[in-house]
């Protein structure tokens, strides 16, 4: 097997430049394995050679967050590595963040695999575990060689593009990404075994981690509807004919804002529905089944409500990613607030 070119990244302390007094030193490169990188070379054995060690002071990275990583990437790139091993950073916070940032940059900008290691409470874990493979370590460098071996063994798999098992099996912090894998038993057999275990009161491991959505407190109730401006918002796929905003039929990334000024009712001939997650026959026949503009106008004229907001917002809520849902919600809410809207009727399907 080909010997891999490995570049290590260390801070001033593990690179043996000095202690906190040297934390301000800028990026530099040394040939071969220096300081703690010697443990990496030992763990690699015949599989790879540490061709260079890139070093930088913790304070330098923390104080120049934008430029330091770019400078380090240049030094790394010049070595043409097959793998970058950063740290391990243990519980050292500034060092952990630097390792995470560098590994993320190495992966995306140099398209070279990278691995780092740190303690679960290192802030670098929460910041970078989604982007980077981070091996859990102790808080201090008391079992350095052992932990570096785990880091290197994961790094070699990444460099050789070998398939990875679960975070528990391989020993890295879960990245929260899903990847299709073939397993031995079919889903029905696994489900039967899981149900029997659950019935027996045994510990079960769900194949889908249970969601941990934040609780969103309900806003205080409206006391005086008579002075309230109410907006209509839907994720039911309501669009004007021709779908001018090109809202996706599923997995939406866009929403539309449509003016209804002067409309007592929505004319079915002017509107369409692009939602691909439910039978839209009835809302196409009569869009008020989705957006009750007709009743809202009556209430407005009777003085039951203060005003109907003259813009309605719409998207398609089907297979929409949580990230896009949250962003669109924030943007719509900001516009409604800026327009002085007091309350929203949100219709879903």
């Amino acid at each position: 097997m080909q010997t891999l070119r490995v570049v290590c990244y260390l801070n001033q302390f593990f690179g043996q430049l000095g202690g906190e007094d040297k934390a301000g030193v800028g990026p530099q490169v040394m040939p071969g394995a220096v300081g703690a990188a010697r443990a990496v070379q030992q763990a690699l054995g015949e599989a790879g050679t540490v061709v260079a060690t890139v070093l930088c002071g913790d304070n330098y990275v923390a104080e120049h967050p934008d430029t330091a990583v770019a400078e380090l990437l240049q030094l790394v790139a010049a070595q043409h590595p097959d793998l970058v091993v950063a740290g391990p950073a243990f519980l050292a916070g500034r060092y952990g963040v630097a390792c995470g940032a560098l590994c993320a940059g190495v992966q995306t900008q140099l398209t070279v695999p990278a691995v780092t290691g740190m303690h679960a409470e290192n802030p670098g874990v929460e910041l970078y575990r989604r982007q980077v493979y981070i091996v859990p370590t102790g808080a201090e460098a008391t079992r350095m060689l052992d932990e570096v071996r785990r880091l290197v063994s994961l790094g070699l798999k990444l460099a050789r593009r070998e398939p990875l098992g679960s975070p528990t099996d391989e020993g890295y912090f879960p990245r929260g990404l899903t990847h299709n894998t073939l397993v031995d038993d079919n889903a029905a057999q696994r489900a039967t075994a899981m149900l029997l275990a659950k019935l027996a009161g045994q510990q079960i491991v769900s194949e889908v981690p249970l969601p941990d959505f934040p609780q969103i407190p309900a806003p205080p109730p409206i006391k005086e509807l008579r002075h309230t401006t109410i907006a209509l918002v839907t994720d039911g796929g309501f669009v004007p004919q021709g779908n001018p905003d090109r809202i996706e039929a599923l997995a939406a990334t866009r929403y539309g804002a449509y003016n209804i000024q002067g409309q007592q009712q929505l004319d079915p001939g002017q509107y369409d529905n692009v939602h691909r997650g439910y039978d839209t026959t009835y809302v196409k026949q009569d869009p008020h089944r989705l957006l009750p503009v007709d009743v809202a106008r009556e209430f407005e004229q009777q003085g039951t409500i203060g005003k109907l907001h003259e813009t309605v917002y719409s998207t398609t809520g089907v297979a929409t990613t949580l990230a896009h849902s949250a962003r669109m919600g924030r943007e719509i809410a900001a516009q409604l607030r800026a327009a002085g809207v007091d309350a929203v009727i949100l219709t879903s399907t």
Partner: peptide, 14 residues
Amino acid sequence: IEQVGASRLMALVQ
């Protein structure tokens, strides 16, 4: 992917 459970594919969280 057989939703009734005949297939052996599984999305592994990594």
